[in-house]
Design a binder for these strands. Structure first.
Length: 462
RNA sequence: GGCUAGGUGGCAGAGUGGUUAUGCAGCGGCCUGCAAAGCCGUGUACCUCGGUUCGACUCCGGGCCUAGCCUCCA
């Protein structure tokens, strides 16, 4: 089975073939740590984490690098605004980011490089760009000379003249052309800085990713991922720098970009102020619910975030966990992921299709008659769940969490009273108690092995 | 203005040149003391106008609408 990917560079779905069949390399742009990550920021980590897991089913070695950008003017501004040292900001939000992503089921990357730990690599890369005639120094800045790279604009399919015509390119007096971008800029006062051949300063926005990708993965990498707003200018500039420094015609062989999470059909972004942070969402919903929502649309497509979407995902997962609770068998050996799920994911990570197949497997399990069939489906479901990062909790823990907010002893007492009434065939009283529980958003289910209860989704909050 | 994606049933969201997506909600049935859960069944779905075709929601062209990038942004 082939893995296909939609490559932004070629605007086509291509068969994925790694440069080195033994070692797949992927780099995903990580966060600039100055604030809480919102749910839109979480989409790339979740999507590319899944990409990595899918690639691992096929390739023995997948090296996944995702950085932390811990030097940036927004960080400086946040530190100044809060009156704390810059390192307080970066350390704090790096920790929060890592915790929040873990709660969404994102596995840590193999390498999580920090920009500030790669200043020597950045400086030597800039030096090489100057030496090769692709960059120039001007007023303590170093700028990339876009005119020295004829292929500039290939990723975003942008014509340089049109960009200038757009008239929104920052024009600084020290630039030779308006589209030239900063590799190094001067620092003073409290701003973070390092000594360099061009004076005390700090790196520009794009260079750190080029330097870290080269150091940890090599000059040409297989996959480079990120949100679609990074196509231009960030990835275009990374591509230009990296190709010029390494004298390669490719930097990443496959460029993958995810669409945005939207709020009421508008992009969720800090500047628009319509954000929902992962941190606050995790107070209200299990991480798997948020993960399910993020996987419910294809990663290229925009994903409209809403309470209704979260509720639906929660209900769906409740049903799957109930099936797991009642039917899922222990499995001795790890099975392979069933074809219906894997082939969907191999097809440019078609997560909605994979989830449909996963749901089908669970329904089949619930309907399965004999033990052999149940065991086979259980093995399939466990393997698929492990790949998708779903159904990873014990059902008791899953339902237990929802019950925490309620007084379990009181509910158990009511259920016992109802069972007693039913024994005496006093159904009026039994139904009255059930109505009382229902008013508490508690739904009960009578079964052969006693009465179970759970919390109704989607009505309690908001 | 330039460049990109999209417009599918009540909602979310895949997909396909002629045959069931899936989920949530609804409806009918089985089951149940009654429910719930589960199971079975169920819905004149593919923005619009042309074209290609034996046949188009699916391909091509025009139009309308939406979102994104061109400025920090996942």
């Amino acid at each position: 089975m082939n893995i296909t990917v939609y490559n932004t560079l070629t605007r086509a779905k291509e068969s994925f073939v790694p440069l080195d069949p033994q070692r797949v390399t992927m780099y995903v742009c990580g966060p600039t740590v100055y604030n809480y990550a919102h749910i839109g920021n979480a989409r790339p980590p979740v999507i590319f984490d899944l990409w990595r897991r899918v690639l691992q089913t096929r390739y023995d070695q997948v090296v996944y690098v995702s950085n932390i950008t811990d030097v940036d003017d927004k960080i400086n501004a946040a530190a100044a605004a809060q009156g704390v040292p810059i390192s307080d900001i970066t350390r704090r939000f790096t920790d929060i980011y890592i915790e929040d992503m873990a709660a969404l089921g994102v596995q840590p990357p193999d390498v999580r490089p920090r920009a500030t730990e790669h200043i020597p690599e950045i400086i030597s890369m800039i030096k090489a760009l100057i030496d090769s005639g692709h960059a120039y120094e001007a007023e303590q800045h170093v700028l990339f000379d876009v005119s020295a790279y004829p292929d500039y604009g290939q990723l975003s399919r942008r014509d340089r003249r049109e960009m200038i015509a757009g008239a929104r390119v920052e024009v600084a007096p020290y630039k030779r052309q308006p589209e030239d971008f900063v590799l190094w800029k001067p620092s003073s006062g409290d701003l973070p800085g390092w000594d360099s051949p061009w004076g005390y300063g700090r790196p520009g926005w794009h260079i750190e990713c080029s330097a870290m990708a080269a150091k940890h993965l090599g000059e040409v990498i297989d996959i480079h991922g990120g949100g679609s707003d990074l196509v231009f200018p960030h990835h275009e500039n990374e591509l230009a720098q990296s190709c010029c420094v390494h004298q390669q015609d490719r930097f990443a062989r496959y460029w993958l970009h995810n669409g945005f999470v939207q709020m009421e059909s508008r992009k969720m972004s800090k500047s628009l102020g319509n954000v929902l942070t992962v941190h606050e969402l995790l107070q209200q919903h299990p991480g798997e619910v948020l993960r399910y929502v993020l996987l419910s649309a294809h990663y290229h497509q925009p994903l409209d975030w809403s309470e209704a979407a979260v509720t639906q995902a929660h209900k769906t997962l409740d049903r799957l966990y109930a099936i797991a609770r009642d039917h899922l068998q222990p499995v001795a050996a790890a099975a392979s992921v069933p074809d219906a799920v894997l082939s969907a994911l191999y097809d440019d990570l078609n997560t909605p299709k994979a989830l449909a197949a996963f749901n089908q497997l669970c329904r089949d399990l619930a309907a399965a008659k004999d033990t052999a069939e149940k065991q086979g489906l259980s093995a399939d479901i466990r393997a698929a769940g492990a790949l998708l990062g779903l159904l990873q909790e014990a059902p008791e823990a899953w339902f237990g969490r929802q019950k925490q907010a309620l007084d379990a002893d009181a509910i158990d007492a009511l259920i016992a009273a109802r069972d007693a009434a039913r024994q005496q065939r006093d159904f009026a009283r039994a139904d009255a108690i059930r109505a009382e529980l229902d008013a508490m958003n508690v739904i009960i289910e009578d079964s052969a092995d006693g009465t179970k209860w759970r919390v109704r989704q989607g009505t309690a909050e908001s």
